[in-house]
């Protein structure tokens, strides 16, 4: 698989933004070491496809577009009625094998990791930062760990996933590569007002 090149390479500058001292209210980092696989099926055969995936990934397949299932370093999102995203580490051998294997006629499997930029937003003000543009309530009571939402920020389509650990505000934002720089400009501009830190890409 070709080496992934960051869409943010020209604008990504680790360091403090906004307040130069004190604790960072938001911590931003790009997650480069991720892969993302899309699995699409057909209505009549999708339940059977899910059963096969459950056996392969050793976990349940989510039944709705509200909660992801995270297991063994992977997160599975039901992004449409018969469409799944499986996110995992870039060196996830199972996912890499899965993409290269012929899926048969019941599924279309596509590696789409290079078409998405993943930005992690963490810190005490992470929710405040995202809600400056995201029309989804991110309060823990209605958006707990593994909740996700496909929505729009600054007219840019995003998928926002609340990751662990429990009790902390950590969100992974999946942005289409074409809009990654625009999203990053919006994110860092709003983060400046709150005071934050940009960490080295993971």
């Amino acid at each position: 698989m070709p080496e992934q090149r960051s869409a943010l390479a020209a604008v990504y500058r680790p360091g403090r933004i906004g307040a130069p001292e004190g604790p960072a209210a938001v911590i931003l980092s790009e997650r480069l070491s991720r892969t993302l696989v899309q699995v699409c099926g057909w209505r009549d055969s999708f339940p059977q496809l899910c059963r096969g995936l459950e056996a392969l990934l050793s976990c349940a397949i989510p039944g709705d577009g509200l909660r992801a299932v995270s297991h063994a370093g992977r997160s599975i999102f039901r992004v449409g009625p018969e469409r799944l995203w499986v996110a995992g580490a870039a060196d996830d051998d199972l996912l890499r094998t899965f993409v290269t294997q012929a899926p048969g006629e019941d599924a279309v499997v596509t590696e789409i990791g290079h078409s998405r930029t993943v930005v992690r937003v963490a810190g005490a003000q992470a929710r405040t930062l995202l809600n400056r543009g995201l029309p989804v309530d991110l309060d823990h009571s209605v958006f707990p760990v593994d909740a996700f939402a496909q929505s729009v920020i600054h007219h840019i389509p995003v998928l926002v996933h609340r990751t662990g650990p429990e009790g902390e505000a950590v969100f992974d934002v999946y942005v289409t590569r074409d809009y990654a720089v625009s999203f990053w400009e919006w994110l860092t501009r709003v983060a400046q007002a709150l005071g934050g830190q940009i960490r080295e890409a993971e």
Binding site: G80, S151, V152
Partner: peptide, 12 residues
Amino acid sequence: ACPYCGERDQVE
């Protein structure tokens, strides 16, 4: 109220 995603804002 999207049947798949829950209640969402018109901008989506």
